[in-house]
Structures are given as structure tokens and as C-alpha cells.
Design a protein around this nucleic acid. Structure first.
Lengths: 136, 136
DNA sequence: TATTGTTATACTCTATAACTATA
DNA sequence: TATAGTTATAGAGTATAACAATA
């Protein structure tokens, strides 16, 4: 019935992403994080002293939308901002932020493993390179 | 740098879906259709006399959100609704609706081919089965 | 009792435009 | 001139609750 739609890569991509994000969101909510916030924390942990603009470019988040996101992370005591010059702010994790992304990161790793486990073995190793070829 | 995030299948899935939908939307907008509307037309063309509820269940659209969507398609003269009983309405394409999804469908087919062409040959045939395994 | 279609509403996510201060 | 951070706002898209009428 829906086989026609499921044969469209674009449609399958949309449904798969919606399904996966719909499952990940409540897991991260258990850590009081949204998906975009977790992505920011993972990136900031990986690379120190990034600015808001740099984070936005890397994660495809508009500068304007970074403001409330970072404000919330800062209010929660997970990041702190330090002037680089009179124009830019370096963003880094606080101790609490490190602890938070450590525990949330473990939940994410488990989630990602379970996600890959759903894919039949013969297709599994092809998923990531195929997806990254589409957007990178 | 972002390699850490790009190695998470969930993250790659999200970015790929966002990128692809961001490209498809303006193409369909050229046919005065939104992505969800095009999906409805494709489904309704494939299977006659579906109800709003059935379409919603198949495409993962809330019943409440089907109302404005179908109203717009009906106002545009692309679908018509006919009572099945005193409770349900059968939805089918009009002549204009058939013409619309024919031309939009051609654009979608071209888009999907170009999408697959981006995926390296050795991964290409694995994408669709991997994605469908995730959500179906 | 469960389901259909519907209304109204709220919430999240994202996009745009404009402003200032600084590089 | 271009960029960083910010504000305000608007638009999608989606989710929830409730209702009347019917299966």
C-alpha cells in the first residue's frame, strides 16, 4: 500500500528521521536536554573556545536561534562564556556541563547502538557513509 | 572537527533529512504544494477512497492536522470528498489533482534520482532498505 | 464504546529583518 | 565592510484536548 512512498529515498529519510528524533527526544528530556542542546554540548566538549557563530555554522543553527539556546545552557550552569575580545565570546563547558554531557552522552551512545542494531547486518555499515554523502 | 557528530547515525540522519527536505520544499513550492500535501496526493492516487483518518495513520499525520491540509487541497480543486456513510468521507483526486500530481510526481522522481546519485555507488542500494528498517 | 471529522489552541522549531558594537 | 551578538517577530509544523455525530 504505502510501498510506493517507502520506495522514495526522500520519503524514507523523512520518516526515519522523524521516528528516530521522536525516540531520542524523550531520552534526552530525561536529562533535561533538547536534541539541539545535546549537540551543542557534544561539540563544545570536543572543541574548546568556540563562539556562538561558529557553533551555529557547524550545527546549522541560525545565529539568532543560538541566543536562547545558549542562554538556557548557561542558566542551567552547563556552559560559561568568556570574552575573547570585545566582540566575541568563547564558550566552554563548566564542571556541571562536563558531567551532564558525560551522562547524556552515555545515553546517546546506547541509543545509537540500538538504532544501528535495527538495520539488517548487510546494510548496517553502509548507512552512515550514505547519509553523510547526502549532506556533507 | 564535527567528525564526532557525523559518526552518530542519529545525527547524520537528522542532518541528511533536513538538507533533503530543505531542497525538496522549494521544488514542490514551484508546483504550489507542500511536502506533506504531495505525500497525500501520491497516496490518494495510489489508493482510491481512503478516509482522512486512514491517510493520517499511513503518513503519520494527526487527524486534527489533516483538516486544514485536506481543506487546502480541496479548495485548490485537487481532491474531492464523497460520503461513504453518514460518518466518513472518501477522498479521491479530481482531474486537476491527477494532472498536478503527475507533473509534481515527475519533479519528485527527478529529485529522488539526483539524491541517490549523490550516494557513492557501493552504498547506494543499501540506503533505502536501511532507512526503511529503521521506521517501518 | 470506539471512531470520524472537526474546532480551537498551544508549543516547538525555524526563518527573517534590523540594530549595536566591534573586527 | 564584514562579522558577532542580540532583539523581536513571524511562520511552519506538530501536538493536545474536547466536542458532536455516527459506527
Amino acid at each position: 500500500m504505502t510501498d510506493l512512498l517507502a520506495q522514495l529515498p526522500g520519503y524514507a529519510l523523512r520518516r526515519a528521521a522523524n521516528a528516530v528524533m521522536g525516540e531520542l527526544a524523550p531520552i534526552l528530556a530525561g536529562h533535561d536536554l533538547k536534541i539541539a542542546e545535546a549537540a551543542v554540548l557534544l561539540l563544545v566538549r570536543e572543541q574548546a573556545n568556540l563562539t556562538s557563530s561558529q557553533i551555529g555554522k557547524t550545527l546549522d543553527i541560525q545565529r539568532a536561534n543560538m541566543v536562547p539556546l545558549l542562554n538556557r545552557l548557561e542558566s542551567a550552569g552547563l556552559i560559561h562564556r568568556e570574552p575573547i575580545d570585545k566582540k566575541s565570546l568563547a564558550i566552554n563547558l563548566t564542571k556541571d556541563g562536563e558531567a551532564k554531557i558525560c551522562e547524556a552522552g552515555a545515553a546517546i551512545d546506547t541509543f545509537e547502538k540500538n538504532l544501528l542494531a535495527r538495520v539488517p547486518a548487510e546494510h548496517r555499515d553502509h548507512l552512515l557513509p550514505a547519509l553523510n554523502a547526502i549532506w556533507r
